[in-house]
């Protein structure tokens, strides 16, 4: 039951390798940066074996996401898991992947017959200049769910409500290392 973030199938030639690479990029293979020094672990568990130490600002490739953990491959090609909250994906520079939208899967256009179609910007000026569309706002009520609809969806998805307390907001972790 060992979980390998990048469990690659046996190599069967260059063609397959290229296909896999293509799939990886379609899925949005992301480059990440370690926020603070941490351990690379063999499994997505705090108790798992430590495979390596990762320094802050070290670059990794994110290959999987599982709960509190991300499967990563380090620059030296080592694979393992790090805590997902310890990764950022942008560097302030142009980045590749991660933020790419999938091809639009919805038709564009309004549910109102009288609204014009086309790409609608939502910048500050677009919002300020907009003329209120009360009939479209009224449609929100039309699509609203009843509590039973919501519960039935949750049940279909195998979701169970749980008691979880709110957490205290902190500005930095106690064991933060200065870098």
């Amino acid at each position: 039951m060992a979980k390998r973030p990048n469990a690659a199938p046996a190599r069967s030639g260059l063609a397959l390798g290229l296909v896999l690479a293509g799939l990886a990029s379609l899925a949005g293979a992301e480059s990440g940066t370690v926020l603070k020094a941490t351990e690379l672990r063999a499994e997505p568990q705090a108790s798992a074996d430590v495979l390596a130490k990762l320094a802050a600002k070290e670059s990794v490739e994110i290959t999987a996401r599982q709960g509190a953990w991300a499967g990563v491959t380090t620059g030296s090609g080592q694979s393992g898991w790090v805590r997902i909250l310890n990764l950022r994906t942008g560097s302030g520079e142009a980045s590749q992947g991660g933020g790419q939208a999938l091809a639009s899967v919805f038709r564009t256009g309004s549910t109102s017959a009288d609204a014009s179609t086309g790409v609608k910007g939502l910048g500050a000026e677009d919002l300020r200049r907009a003329y209120p569309n009360t009939s479209e706002a009224a449609r929100l009520t039309e699509f609203a769910a009843r509590p039973d609809d919501a519960r039935s969806h949750a049940s279909q998805m195998g979701l169970q409500a749980r008691q979880v307390s709110y957490l205290e907001s902190r500005k930095s972790s106690r064991n933060r290392r200065s870098r």
């Binding site: 549910t111 569309n133 479209e136 699509f143 769910a145």
Partner: peptide, 20 residues
């Protein structure tokens, strides 16, 4: 008024169920 709802009642109802 700046951008209407996506014309897909199924999508709108789905998001309402998750949200509620």
């Amino acid at each position: 008024g700046a951008a209407p709802l996506v014309n897909d009642p199924g999508l709108q109802r789905y998001v309402n169920r998750v949200g509620l």
